[in-house]
């Protein structure tokens, strides 16, 4: 009994939400598996499309610089105009004396999405080449933190709301930055859909 419960065998998993011990040796590694008690996702399903992950992360990184620097919205009112970009908005908040707020917006709209993409790229590339660096576990941990704080989808909704809000008072134009943000967002969504963290951890374990 104790032998079969040895944690070195992947025959057992614990539910992350209710700690139920699950025997999974009969479940194939690519089959989605839910906790019978609380329905938490215990094992992700499907096959890890590593090339798609790599391509999406790379495209996201290429689009990233225009996405944060190009104008997102442009507003004209009686001959005057103003525009914003992701970084411009952060900088403006900073100069207005809202330093803490500007750092928070910077983290969620620029820093976290960037590192999310960069780490995705690094993880997919090293897995693809089967040459995992020694700090690969740290990459995976930071990847997860960055995933939690990357809120580009919320920012995109913010662009839409701001656009509709300003329509009443003047002319609003959608800048090229918006299209780049949408592109980066799409890449981030593809990355999240493709990535299988458990596969990455298993690869790391086997390499050791």
């Amino acid at each position: 009994m104790t032998d079969s419960l040895s944690p070195h065998r992947e025959s057992l998993l614990a539910c992350p939400d209710c700690d139920l011990l699950l025997r999974v040796d009969a479940v194939p590694l690519d089959r989605e598996c839910h906790c019978p008690r609380c329905d938490a996702l215990v094992q992700d399903g499907g096959h890890y499309a590593i090339d798609l992950h790599l391509a999406a992360a790379f495209s996201g990184l290429v689009l990233f610089v225009p996405a944060v620097t190009a104008p997102v919205l442009r507003f004209t009112m009686v001959g005057q105009w103003g525009s914003n970009s992701l970084l411009g908005g952060v900088w403006h908040l900073w100069t207005q004396g809202e330093q803490i707020l500007s750092l928070l917006v910077l983290l969620c709209s620029v820093v976290a999405p960037f590192f999310h993409l960069l780490l995705s790229f690094g993880i997919a590339l090293t897995l693809r080449l089967s040459r995992l660096p020694n700090n690969f576990p740290a990459w995976l941990k930071w990847h997860r933190h960055m995933q939690g704080w990357s809120m580009l989808e919320v920012y995109t909704l913010g662009i839409i709301v701001a656009y509709v809000k300003m329509l009443d008072d003047g002319d609003v134009f959608v800048g090229s930055g918006t299209y780049c943000v949408a592109g980066v967002l799409l890449c981030l969504i593809i990355c999240n859909q493709c990535f299988r963290e458990d596969v990455a951890w298993r690869q790391w374990e086997q390499r050791k």
Partner: peptide, 27 residues
């Protein structure tokens, strides 16, 4: 995470609508 919407909107509005004495948005 969706609560951040208001803050992002503010960061967009204060930057875009910043036109001296014609129109200004301040947080």
């Amino acid at each position: 995470r969706w609560s951040m919407l208001d803050l992002f909107m503010i960061s967009i509005l204060v930057t875009v609508v910043h036109m001296g004495n014609i129109a200004n948005v301040e947080s």
